[in-house]
Design a binder for these strands. Sequence first.
RNA 1: GGUGGAAUGGCCGAGAGGCGAGGCAAGGGACUGCAAAUCCCUCUACACGGGUUCAAAUCCCGUUUCCACCUCCA
Length: 471
Amino acid sequence: MSSLHLYDTLSRTTSPFTPLKEGEVGIYLCGATVQAPPHIGHVRSGVNFDILRRWLMKSGYNVTFIRNVTDIDDKILHKAVHEKAPWWAVAMKYERAFTDAYAALNVLPPTYEPRATGHVTQMIALMQLLIERGMAYAPGNGDVYLEVRKLESYLTLSRQKLDDLQSAADADETFKRDVRDFALWKAAKPGDPSWPTPWGAGRPGWHLECSAMAQAYLGEEFDIHGGGLDLIFPHHENEIAQSEAAGYGFAKRWLHNAWVTASGEKMSKSLGNSLQVHELLKTVRGIELRWYLGSAHYRSMLEFSHEALAESSVAFRRIESFLLRSVEILGQEPTPVLGTAFIDAMNDDLAVPTALASISESLRLGNSAITSGNKSVIATSANEIRGALEVLGCDPFDPAFASASTSDDVTTALDGTIKLALAQREAARVRKDFESSDAIRDGLTALGIVIEDTAQGPRWSISRKTEGSGS
RNA sequence: GGUGGAAUGGCCGAGAGGCGAGGCAAGGGACUGCAAAUCCCUCUACACGGGUUCAAAUCCCGUUUCCACCUCCA
């Protein structure tokens, strides 16, 4: 039996995962800056780390999962001006949009989801500590800076040299001891929201909040820190700087997810709104979008295309369809079980693509068993597939997806109606009146109802549109 | 300029010295009244040039192209 190995950005190697405290795992994931609706790149990060979390849970760990919300920052303030709304209303609006998107994709809610603005007290305490330790300074303009040259380990995550960094075009050297020193705290500008501190009123710098909140919820030292690749520098580098300057052990392991790209490039606003989560959910179900986003390895770029998404949906429906048929045949939902091949793949730095190959194998065996009527093989396959889908967060029987097997009044009525039509069709087929039987089937097809003749008799399902439109 | 990543069959996407992951598409076949679904078979790929090795997609050297980060980024 294999054991979990994970990659670590800091060492750039894959190594056995050992938690600080047996049976417990603490994860901090950098969440969204809530200044615009989520696009699929944002939620890919959520899905990737949700799969990690689920796998850790399945492996028997008690996982404390923190994902923060950055609800105060320059972009939010700009957006507030643009939308003629208070900054906090803008932040709330987009935070809800993110929450909805995560929910639609069955991303488990974090254990705690701290907002930056709710942790100013912790941030001030951290700054105080940093100043006392001589690592940070308040030059009197209301800003507070971290003195990066005092840190041996600065830039070890991104493996850069301090002197190689290009200095920011707008760097203000008046108050900084070194251009590369970064702001822990930013002095208030007229009209902007601010919080009082011993060094003057202002608002948090982006990096400070994560160090403060990680410490507040996970302690000075914790197991895994995650985020998108683009956060390595400066964000995570600066988090390390702050936390280590404070004397904290901080994150033992760093995991970074790659981007969703479009036309080979990192997704950005210039690509328009079409890749926003709520837009894509008009073409595929949440479970299918999740399947797509989760199917590539988390450290690989995922090149988005509507065609690939549609194709991925079709593949998922094949699996789903087998599970639903297994329920019809066996009369009960499958019991989630994990196959060895799946376990080994997941333990190998969450090798989801390899894990999917094991699902395909089970699917093939299961479908063959349906043809041959071997119920025990059907059950084995269905159980293993459901076990795998559960870890991937794509279990069709998960109530989160309000699955296809609902049995409300409308569904019951519809099922009865269609079965009536199918009975007519069967009668026509028996008397070899294929013109009539085909007319019934064509009629149903026109209504979006797909008929399949199986060894167990005809079955029906609602056909789902696959809109591979665009480009 | 610095740092990091990538190039795999029609497409998507794994792998990381020897046994051709998997999916989708396409073609053929089985089953079927016909479809659909399902199963079987086929389609033998690793940017380029050198090198190491019995053996290279994988290691080494060089080259090309692309992407990202360098204080807004999932």
